[in-house]
Simulated assay, not measured.
Amino acid sequence: MPANKKYLSNNWQRFAKVTAGFFGGYIVTMTFHMALAYIFPHKNVIITSSFTSIILWVALIITAFIAKNGWKIWALYTVLSILFSVLIYLGNTYTPLN
């Protein structure tokens, strides 16, 4: 029995979901953990991020495939990665007084 056409997405939506899930999710995961490392500069953050990064990346992949529109997921992942990149920049340029 073939699938119902209303539940299938077109090729561009499928491409957007796959690329957003893998590449966009990876970029968001890495920028999030780098920002976390700048906010809390401890060894434990780096060690913990090696485990939680895989969990977060898989969750972002699943989120991309559940979404209706792949381009909106790309936009969301781009905004999140820019936000985390700004936090990294601010954490890198901020030098507290000793």
Rank of each mutant, 00 (worst) to 15 (best):
K72G: 00
I88R: 11
T78E: 06
N4M: 11
A3C: 05
F32K: 14
T48E: 15
I55S: 09
Y89M: 06
S81M: 10
F32L: 07
A67I: 02
V79W: 07
L60V: 02
S85Q: 04
I62E: 10
A20L: 00
L76W: 03
I47A: 09
L76Q: 12
L8R: 13
Y7D: 15
I39M: 10
P41N: 08
K6R: 15
F15E: 08
T48H: 06
L60E: 08
R14Y: 11
F65E: 03
I27K: 04
N4I: 04
N69S: 09
Y94V: 00
W71F: 11
V18A: 04
M34G: 08
F65Q: 03
V86K: 07
I27E: 11
L60T: 02
V86I: 15
L8T: 09
Y26K: 10
S53I: 03
S85G: 15
K5A: 12
M1Q: 08
I39V: 11
G25K: 05
A16H: 02
L83E: 14
Y7F: 14
I46L: 07
T93G: 00
W57F: 07
A75R: 13
F40V: 13
H33K: 12
N92H: 13
I39R: 08
G21L: 01
G24W: 00
V79N: 10
M1W: 05
K5E: 15
F22H: 04
G91R: 07
I39D: 13
T52N: 10
